[in-house]
Structures are given as C-alpha cells and as structure tokens.
Design a protein around this nucleic acid. Structure first.
Lengths: 231, 231
DNA sequence: GTCTATAAGGAGATAGAC
DNA sequence: GTCTATCTCCTTATAGAC
C-alpha cells in the first residue's frame, strides 16, 4: 500500500488540526500548515482540493469517533433503564463525557475539541450545517431521549435547555484559561475530573429546572392537559 | 466642533462592528470596512492606529454601556434585599438581561453582542484579557454577589457555574440559527422573551444545583465546618 | 504523488501631497 | 483630517515538469 500517501495526508491533517484550533480558519494559512507538516504547498490542494475541504476532513476524522462513543453510551443507558426511559443525567453524561474525555485524553484530543468549539463561532463556516450533515442522526437520538426523560416538559423547553448545556460545554472546552476572567488561576487549581462533575451537575440541574416562568409553566400545563385528553 | 471627524470615526466603527461580527476579525479586511463606511483606507490607521486597536475601540464603545446597566441593576437588587444578600436569580438577571436586551433591541445591538460572543473564541485576540482590563471590576462585583447569595457553596463551584452560565448565554447570542442543529426552525418559533426566560431559568437552576457530586459535597462540607469554627 | 514556478489578487501599514 | 500612491508581504490556487 502507499503508506507515503497516508503519511502525507495525516501529517497535513495533524498540522491543520492544530493550527486551525490555535489560529482559527482564517488565521491559519495553508502555507503555515504545510510548513508545520513538512510537506509541499501543492500537496494540500492535491489531497484535499481546497482549504475548506481540508477543514471538513480534519473535523470528520474525529467527530465520528466521538459520536460513536456517545451513541454507545446512550444505548447502554437505555438498555439499563428499560423499559423505562434513562434519566436526564444518564443522557447528559452520554453526550458530554465522550467529548470531555476526548479533550482530556491528550493534547491532540484537547486541540480537536477546542477546534470544534471554535468552529461554532467561526465566520464563513457553518458548524451547524456541517453537524447537521454529519451528526444529525446522533443529535436526534439525544433530543428524543431527553424528551422521553422529561415527559411533562414542553419539547421546546427541552430543546432550549439542551442547547444551553451544549453552550456551557463548548465555553469550557473552547479556550483554555478563559475561566480566568472570573478568578485568576481557577482553571489551574481545578482538576479535570472536578470540572467534568461541575459541568454535568450544572447541565442536569439546568435541564431539569422546575418551570417558575409563567410562559413555561403555561406551556407545560397545556401539554399535561393534552396528554390527559389522549389517555 | 469637528463633527466631520466624529462622523468618519463613527462610520468606521459602525462598519467595523458589522463586518467583524459577520466575518470575524481575520475575515473582515480593513479595505472591506472602509468601503462599507465610505471613507478612505488611510482613515482607519489615522484614527485608530491599527486593525486590532480598531477592534478594541468597537468593543469599548458599547461594552461600558452594558456593564453600567448590569451594575445599576445589581445595585438595585442589593438595595432591595438589604441587609440580606440578593437572590441568585436577582444576580443572574442583573448580569444577563442587559446583554440580552442589547441583543434584542435592534439589529445593531444584536450585531454587537454577536461580535462579543464571537470574540470569545476568536484567534489572535484574547477577549479574556480585554474584559479583564475593561470589565474586571464589574466581574468582581458579580462573583462576590453570587458567593454571598450561596454562602454554603465553595467559591470554586460558584465560579465554575457562573462560567457555564456565561457560556450558555454566549452560545445563544453568538450565532443566530445555531439552535437549528437540535430542531429546525425552533429559534423562529420561540419569542425573544421566552428565550430570555429559558436562559435565566436554566442558569439559575444550574448555579443553585444541589451538589450530588462527591468531591463538590466534600468541599461544601469542609467549608461549612470552617464557617462554624469562625462563628 | 510530489515538486517548482507562477498566476492573480488581497493584506496591513505608511509617506507625503493637499 | 483626508487623500493618493506605494511599500512589502502574504494569500489561495493551479499548470506542468519530474
């Protein structure tokens, strides 16, 4: 087999992953990437066609691994809870832990997750579209599981809360040292395991919050009335 | 007075605000900004010295307004609750609402908040450093208020939860349409007022979560023991 | 598959006329 | 304060030799 090809491609992917994460899509030039990868400038266009296609290749290489781990964990939670629905915490853990573990496993993993978080806000690239194309099915599994775990909660509220939890996760994983805004050095004194616990605690409590808001409560009430009618 | 000067400066600031938000710092060129502002290329360097200084000027123009509103609201909450500490919800509302209101007031406000959220993950610019320099005092007021509202909670846990809440807020405000990842069109069917309620509900519940985690509970316990010793 | 060479254009910054 | 002109450097992308 032509291992030289795979080597060149992987060296480019590794370098692009790091530089896109560190400097952003616009900030990292193809020239910087080929320098870091020790390959020729033209190799990128030969193997990946364009800079944006290279970015998608970088993302695709690892995102499928994370989604597989998420779904495997969700499958296990659903099997363990059967015939009932798994708890919100079980669903949240199944979603969050594979990402956080990837970020905490080694520097490469941290870099990749940082890149993912960054790309959510990156100009000229729609991470939403990308994930919809590549992870749409996994996302549907999780929103369905959350909705089942919270039968009295309006689906709209469930979606927004899941959305907020994802925001909290990406805020944590996107930029090391950002917590220093609140308290200098806090990140350095909190272990990875504690950070993960804090994130899960926060997310589960936020998702399960009792609806004190009038609008939310009204929607929950009308949903209960509807579900009673259907019985 | 030389209103022509102010006009040029403000036209540049307006155009830069929009283009930085839409295309990012790297993605928006000075040339595109001067075209949109209908001013000369050299005007930017004359008035703002460099591209990065222009970005800081754009951020500074509005961030002080938001922080003033935040602190005014926090002052009012503290006065109303005196001599007790204001509730977590009051503190969270004082922090979140001025930002969300800015984002929902008009398109300019939305653009600016989008820019702020974006800059948290922007390469080659440390929003953390910037806010530390420009909003450090306001941040300290809020972390102190939260710590007072949650006397049994370890300060470390309070900080992390506040951090997560900020992440949820920025995830919401940074990129219109991102929610569509979870449910197509959800953003379009949820009113701004409902989104704000959902965000505050989620954040307050997350911050106030009972500590089920072993480590967190241990830290809370040792803090309670310490506070008893001090009495 | 990999390389050199080059096309074709855009970037930030500045000097100096007006 | 505003303009033109320009310096210097970098960008993505591709054609064609090897």
């Amino acid at each position: 087999m032509n291992s030289a090809v795979a080597n060149t491609q992987n060296r480019v992917l590794d370098a692009a992953e790091r530089l896109f994460a560190e400097q952003g899509f616009e900030g990292a030039s193809i020239r910087a990437i080929v320098d870091a990868a020790n390959v020729n400038l033209a190799a990128v266009h030969y193997h990946f066609k364009s800079k944006e296609a290279l970015l998608e290749a970088v993302l695709l290489r690892r995102i499928s691994v994370i989604n597989e781990a998420r779904l495997k964990s969700l499958d296990a939670a659903e099997a363990a809870a059967a015939p009932n629905a798994p708890s919100v915490e079980a669903v949240v853990r199944a979603f969050i832990i594979p990402t956080v573990e990837c970020a905490q496993r080694d520097e490469t993993g941290a870099t990749f997750v940082q890149l993912m978080s960054r790309m959510f806000t990156e100009p000229k690239f729609s991470m939403t579209d990308f994930l919809g194309r590549k992870s749409g099915d996994a996302m549907s599994r999780f929103t369905a599981a959350l909705t089942r775990a919270l039968p009295q909660m309006p689906a709209e509220v469930v979606m927004w809360r899941a959305f907020f939890a994802i925001g909290a996760m990406h805020h944590l994983l996107c930029s090391p040292g950002k917590i220093d805004l609140l308290s200098k050095g806090l990140r350095n004194t909190t272990s990875d395991a504690d950070m993960t616990s804090y994130l899960i605690e926060f997310s589960v409590a936020g998702i399960c919050a009792t609806t004190t808001n009038t609008r939310t409560a009204e929607k929950a009430k009308s949903k209960m009335v509807q579900s009673r009618k259907h019985k």
